[in-house]
Amino acid sequence: RALPCPAHVVFRYQAGREDELTITEGEWLEVIEEGDADEWVKARNQHGEVGFVPERYLNFPD
């Protein structure tokens, strides 16, 4: 997929490290980079905060 792209959060995730982003179910993010580890992506939330989130917690519109 082309980046950046929108993504809808389907599961809540609490950041466990400083470089991760806490996300809430129902929130929209902008995915800006593929992650440095499998199944992680770097995203920006509506407040401009950036961090890594688990890709499987997101839904990408067609």
Rank of each mutant, 00 (worst) to 15 (best):
N59K: 13
E49Q: 15
L21F: 03
V41W: 08
V9Q: 03
G16F: 09
L3S: 08
E49M: 08
Y57S: 15
E25G: 06
A2P: 14
I23Q: 00
I32Y: 11
R17A: 12
H8D: 06
C5R: 05
G35K: 10
V41L: 08
P6M: 05
A15F: 00
P61D: 13
D19K: 11
G51T: 02
D38P: 13
E20P: 00
Y13W: 09
V41S: 02
P6D: 05
F11L: 11
H8P: 01
D62G: 11
P61L: 13
E34W: 11
E18Q: 13
V41N: 00
L3E: 04
E34A: 13
Q14F: 12
H8E: 08
T22V: 01
E34L: 12
P54V: 03
R17E: 12
G26V: 00
Y13R: 07
H8M: 07
E27G: 00
R1Q: 06
A37I: 12
V31M: 04
E18I: 05
E49A: 09
W28P: 10
L29M: 04
D38C: 11
E33A: 11
E27T: 04
Q14R: 09
A15H: 01
H47R: 15
G51A: 02
V53G: 03
F11D: 15
E25H: 08
E30H: 08
F52H: 08
H47T: 09
H8Y: 05
D19G: 15
L29C: 01
P4M: 07
F11R: 12
V41A: 04
P54C: 13
V31L: 05
Y57G: 05
V41I: 06
D36M: 14
D19T: 14
E33G: 14
V41C: 12
D38L: 13
V50D: 03
G48Y: 04
E49T: 11
L29H: 03
Y57L: 12
R12E: 15
I23S: 02
A37H: 13
R17N: 15
E20G: 08
L21I: 04
T24D: 15
K42V: 10
W40A: 06
Y57D: 09
L21Y: 00
F11T: 14
V10P: 00
R56G: 10
E20L: 02
F11E: 15
L21G: 01
F60H: 06
E55P: 10
Q46I: 09
L29G: 00
E18W: 06
I23F: 01
R56M: 10
E25W: 05
N59D: 14
V53P: 01
G35M: 08
V53T: 01
A37G: 11
H8W: 12
V53E: 00
R56F: 09
W40G: 04
V41D: 01
E34Y: 11
A37Y: 07
T22C: 07
W28E: 11
R12D: 12
E20K: 01
A2I: 15
A15W: 03
V10T: 09
E30C: 06
Q14A: 09
P4Y: 04
T22G: 06
A7D: 00
V50C: 08
E30P: 02
A43R: 01
E39A: 12
V9I: 01
D36I: 14
G51Y: 02
D38N: 12
A2Y: 15
A43K: 02
R44D: 00
L58Q: 01
N45Y: 05
G26W: 04
W40F: 09
A2W: 09
R1K: 06
A37N: 11
G35C: 08
E30A: 05
R12I: 01
H8A: 04
D62V: 11
T24C: 09
L58P: 00
R17V: 07
G51F: 03
A37D: 11
P54H: 12
Q46W: 07
R44A: 07
L29V: 15
F60M: 07
I23L: 10
L58Y: 01
V10C: 12
E33L: 05
G51V: 01
A37Q: 14
P6Y: 07
D62W: 05
Q46F: 08
L21W: 03
D38H: 13
L29N: 03
V10S: 10
L58M: 03
R17D: 09
L21A: 08
A7Q: 01
D62Y: 09
R1F: 14
I32N: 01
R1M: 04
I23P: 03
K42Y: 05
G26Y: 03
V9M: 00
G35P: 05
I23H: 00
N45G: 03
L3H: 08
K42R: 08
A15R: 08
D36F: 13
F11M: 15
E25T: 14
E34R: 12
T24A: 10
V41R: 04
R12G: 14
L3F: 14
E49G: 08
E27I: 04
P6E: 06
F52I: 09
K42E: 04
K42C: 07
V31I: 12
T24Q: 14
P4L: 03
L58H: 00
Q14L: 08
I32T: 07
E49K: 12
Y13V: 02
L21R: 00
E34K: 14
F11Q: 10
P61T: 15
E55D: 11
V53S: 00
I32G: 02
R17W: 06
V10F: 05
P6F: 06
V53H: 02
E55N: 11
E33K: 06
E34C: 13
L58E: 00
V53N: 01
H8I: 04
C5M: 03
R44Q: 07
H47A: 15
N59W: 07
L58K: 00
N45E: 00
V53R: 03
V31H: 02
G26A: 04
V10M: 13
E33C: 11
P6N: 03
V50S: 09
V10I: 12
A7C: 05
G16W: 07
P54T: 01
D36S: 11
R17G: 10
V31C: 08
I23G: 03
P4N: 08
L21C: 00
C5L: 04
Y13K: 09
G51W: 00
G16A: 13
W40Q: 10
E27D: 11
G51K: 05
F60K: 04
L3T: 08
G35H: 05
K42D: 03
F52R: 11
V31T: 02
D38F: 10
I23E: 01
R17Q: 10
E27M: 03
E34H: 11
D62Q: 07
A2K: 15
V9G: 03
W40S: 07
P61Y: 06
A37T: 13
W40M: 14
L58V: 07
E39F: 14
E27V: 01
P4T: 09
D62T: 13
R44E: 07
I32L: 11
